[in-house]
């Protein structure tokens, strides 16, 4: 498990009511029933942890992320983009 993956699991478990053991790459976000305010807090914690900006808008009617793995990949991508070439 990458450290990004582990850190993202830690943040989700801390900010929501989801049990850490349920967090796997293929876990569907809708199945985890994370409340909307928790999502906002999770994203803020991720931004602070990795010093990135996640362009998330709670009004987006089409969900970009389906699984926890999608979130981890997006975070990794933002971290890579932020690194000096």
């Amino acid at each position: 498990m990458s450290s990004v993956e582990s850190d993202v699991y830690d943040i989700i478990a801390e900010k929501s009511a989801v049990d850490r053991v349920k967090l796997k790459r293929d876990a569907k976000l809708t199945d985890l029933e994370i409340e909307s305010l928790d999502v906002v807090e999770i994203i803020f914690a991720v931004e602070e942890k990795f010093d990135i900006h996640v362009p998330y808008n709670a009004n987006d009617q089409e969900l970009e992320f389906e699984t926890v793995g999608d979130v981890i990949d997006a975070v990794q991508k933002l971290i890579d983009e932020g690194k000096p070439a």
């Binding site: 906002v40 994203i43 803020f44 998330y56 808008n57 709670a58 009004n59």
Partner: peptide
């Protein structure tokens, strides 16, 4: 901005 409800 932080509460993620603002129109872009």
């Amino acid at each position: 901005e932080a509460i993620r409800v603002m129109a872009t």
